Amino acid sequence: MEILLVEDNPGDVRLTQEAFKEAKIQNQLYVVEDGVAAMEFLHQQGQYADVPRPHLILLDLNLPKKDGREVLREIKQNSALKRIPVVVLTTSGDKKDILISYDLHANCYITKPVELDQFIQIAKSIDNFWLTTVSLPGE
C-alpha cells in the first residue's frame, strides 16, 4: 500500500521516514512538499502522471502554495479521491484546527510529537490501525 506524506518541513519528513523505518513499516512512502504538488500527485498530473494513487494520506495543515485545510477540502469534495483516508499530522494542537479538520472530513487528527521515540509510537499506531486492521477502499 502506498502512503502520501504532504509535508513541507524537511526535518519532519526525515523524522517521519526514520519513524517508519524504526517501526518496520515497509509501505512505499511518497513525499510532496506543498498543497499544489499534493493535488497534482493525487490527480496524477505533470511529473506525477505515473504514480499510483495512495491508499492513505498523511497531511500537514500549514503548507506553502495551498494550505492543508484547502487540500483536505478538495480531496473530500472530489468523488475520485474522497474515500482515501486522510490523517492530519500536524504540529498544531489548536482546538480550532482540530474542529475545522473534522468538519472537512479528516479521518483522524494527530499532533506531531518532537521526539523520535514518540513519533515511532505514532508510526506504529498508524501501521497497526490504518495499514493492518482496517480495510481501505483502494485495496
Rank of each mutant, 00 (worst) to 15 (best):
L15Q: 01
R14H: 12
S92N: 05
G11Q: 11
P85I: 02
L61P: 04
V134C: 02
E33K: 13
K112A: 04
Y48S: 03
P64L: 09
L116T: 12
V86R: 03
E115L: 15
H43P: 03
P10I: 03
V88W: 02
V36A: 14
H105C: 13
K95N: 07
F20T: 04
S101W: 07
K21F: 09
K112T: 02
E2D: 15
K66D: 00
Q44E: 08
D50L: 13
L136T: 14
L81C: 09
L72Y: 08
S125L: 13
F129A: 04
V134I: 15
H105S: 12
D50P: 00
C108L: 06
Q47M: 10
V88I: 15
P64A: 02
Q44L: 10
I75G: 01
V86D: 04
P137W: 10
Q45M: 13
L99M: 13
D127S: 13
H55W: 09
K24C: 09
D34Y: 07
D97R: 05
I122P: 04
L15V: 02
D60M: 03
S79Y: 11
S125C: 01
N9W: 00
P54C: 04
H55P: 01
I122V: 15
E2G: 02
D94Q: 11
P113A: 13
L116H: 07
I120Y: 00
A123D: 10
K82Q: 14
Q118V: 08
D12V: 00
Q45R: 15
C108E: 06
A23R: 09
F20V: 05
Q47R: 15
I110P: 05
V86Y: 05
M39D: 12
D12T: 00
Q121H: 11
V36M: 11
N107R: 03
D67L: 02
